[in-house]
């Protein structure tokens, strides 16, 4: 089994290498390391027109207690990401941030939301779908523009869950 020193050595080596991700498994113990690359760990950098299925991937598996204590910033990062929830568009259509062009947006960065808080409307063929947050927390990012065409599954908001 890997020792703390080994892992430290590994991190150094990977840091200097061109490898971005590293996984190692032995006797049910798994370690996975991921480099902090600009944009890669942030959902907000996802291009608006693409349809990524974003799932925050924890960099450390839960059964790896020994490693937990040693991995530094990456672990914290993973925990932070695990609490982030992405609200996706359930259909293709036009994204509206407010109920009509003259009114305030339903939510903005920093807005507190409950599960049933309406966060936006998506319209297609004069069918209006009020999208609810589905989680309790705070809006930390708005990923699309008012009036923009959104695809099925496209991330619209990032919510930091309470």
């Amino acid at each position: 089994m890997l020792k703390v020193e080994d892992i430290r050595e590994l991190i150094k080596l990977i840091d200097k290498s061109s490898i971005n991700e590293f996984e190692y498994e032995e006797e049910g113990t798994k370690i996975s390391l991921k480099k902090q690359i600009e944009g890669a760990t942030q959902v907000v950098q996802v291009p608006a027109q693409s349809v990524p299925a974003f799932e925050p991937v924890p960099t450390v598996q839960p059964n790896q207690e020994a490693i937990n204590t040693t991995s530094t910033s990456q672990v914290e990062d993973a925990v932070d990401q695990a609490k982030l929830h992405t609200i996706e568009s359930p259909m293709v259509g036009t994204f509206y941030a407010s109920s009509n062009p003259d009114s305030e947006p339903f939510v903005q960065k920093g807005s507190k939301v409950n599960k049933d808080t309406v966060v936006c409307i998506v319209e297609a063929m004069k069918l209006f779908n009020e999208i609810e947050a589905d989680v309790k927390g705070e809006i930390v990012d708005v990923l699309v523009e008012n009036g923009q065409l959104v695809e099925f599954g496209q991330p619209l908001f990032v919510v930091k869950e309470d």
């Binding site: 004069k126 209006f128 779908n129 009020e130 999208i131």
Partner: peptide, 28 residues
Amino acid sequence: PNDILVMGKKIVGILTEMQTEGTNVKAV
């Protein structure tokens, strides 16, 4: 998509709203 017109003027307008739970349609 669904305005009903006669000689270019509107006689019927249709607007639809949907209630969903996740990706399940509860009511239209």
